[in-house]
């Protein structure tokens, strides 16, 4: 899972995968925050019945984004 492993096995995947997924996770977290905030703005602009479902799904997306940031540290 580190540079030593790459030198001994020649396998690039573990060396690249973890940092790439961490960066991806942070980018996705920023995106999820933006979508969540904007969904709230959208729901205030156009008020429909049961619009809490839409805001809730965007909130789930935000929670998933936080989990995604943590996952590479835990599994890889």
């Amino acid at each position: 899972m580190n540079f030593t492993e790459f030198l001994t096995t020649g396998n690039l995947v573990p060396l690249i995968l973890k940092p790439a997924l961490i960066v991806l996770g942070f980018i996705y977290l920023i995106y999820a925050i933006a979508i969540f905030r904007q969904t709230q703005v959208m729901a205030k602009t156009l008020i429909v019945s049961n619009d809490w479902i839409i805001v809730f799904i965007s909130f789930i997306q935000l929670v998933v984004a936080i989990i995604l940031v943590a996952v590479p540290f835990v599994i890889l």
Binding site: L24, A32, I54, Q61, V71, I75, L76
Partner: peptide, 30 residues
């Protein structure tokens, strides 16, 4: 790939696809 790598790549891919569909739905809906 190892099982954890397969799991993570699938997880990220599914979330990416779901986000793409959700974003387009929001644009359609609002």
């Amino acid at each position: 790939l190892t099982p954890p790598q397969i799991l993570i790549i699938n997880l990220y891919s599914v979330i990416f696809i779901a986000s793409y569909l959700w974003l387009n739905f929001l644009l359609y809906f609002f």
